[in-house]
């Protein structure tokens, strides 16, 4: 499995240098990004996923193993994305949502079987034809992750994925997500406000400050 390399990334907002970063996320590693709002956590994810707003300017490369992906259109980067909202398409049923991101390989029956297997793995096999609006928060979160996994991503970006879940469900879902990420050996970047998330992720923690932020080999020089 691939590792995610962020090579000398510098993001500017106008004249203001928002952040610079150089690091590699290993397969199955969850790198947690923390810091107050406005320091560019989500901007970083947007850049990696391919949605950087024209208000920002970025230099550097994003590589999946040896393949440079930051020059590719978003849909060809194979970078899975989970927001704090599950964002299940409200016009499709649960199976439709899962099918949306699936790679078109195999027969229709095989794909349907894969969807069924995925749903069974989380005990939601009876929910294939359901309107996503009728699912509970936890169920939605599970379907959202299944959808991303079925699209066969090579890396994962989590943008405060658990912040809207109620406290009792949170730990359980969190545990389940990290487990899946590790199972699939996906290099993962997680943005969060929650220390507990960071602890549960168990990987490196990158703390962005209000000022220019650096990490990696160039870390110390830049900060000095």
């Amino acid at each position: 499995m691939a590792s995610l390399r962020l090579d000398d990334i510098v993001i500017h907002q106008g004249q203001h240098r928002l952040l610079s970063l150089d690091t590699t996320v290993a397969p199955g590693e969850v790198l947690t990004v923390m810091g107050p709002s406005g320091v560019g956590k989500s901007t970083l994810l947007a850049f990696i996923a391919g949605f950087l707003s024209p208000a920002f300017e970025a230099q550097g490369c994003v590589l999946l193993d040896a393949t440079r992906i930051d020059t590719l259109p978003a849909e060809q980067r194979h970078v899975g994305l989970l927001f704090q909202d599950p964002l299940l398409f409200p016009h499709l049923d649960v199976a439709g949502n899962l099918a949306f991101g699936m790679v078109r390989e195999g027969t229709r029956r095989q794909r349907r079987a894969r969807i069924h297997d995925a749903l069974s793995s989380v005990g939601l096999e009876a929910f294939a034809g359901r309107d996503p609006a009728t699912l509970s928060g936890g169920q939605k979160a599970r379907v959202a992750l299944l959808r991303v996994l079925l699209s066969k991503p090579r890396a994962m970006l989590l943008d405060e994925p658990f912040s809207k879940l109620d406290a009792e469900r949170r730990g359980e879902i969190r545990h389940w997500v990290f487990e899946r990420v590790r199972d699939h050996r996906l290099p993962t970047l997680m943005v969060t406000h929650d220390e507990a998330d960071a602890q549960a992720a168990g990987g490196r923690i990158l703390r962005l400050t209000e000022r220019d932020t650096v990490m990696g080999p160039t870390d110390k020089e830049e900060r000095a």
Binding site: D85, L87, V103, R147, P153
Partner: peptide, 28 residues
């Protein structure tokens, strides 16, 4: 919400597919 398109594109949908299968139904 722009995240609808972002979600769809990160799932591998090209701009036409995002338009026809996501934005248009949501804005029907």
């Amino acid at each position: 919400d722009p995240r609808w398109s972002q979600q769809a594109r990160s799932l591998g949908a090209g701009p036409w597919r995002v338009f026809w299968r996501v934005r248009l139904p949501l804005l029907l």
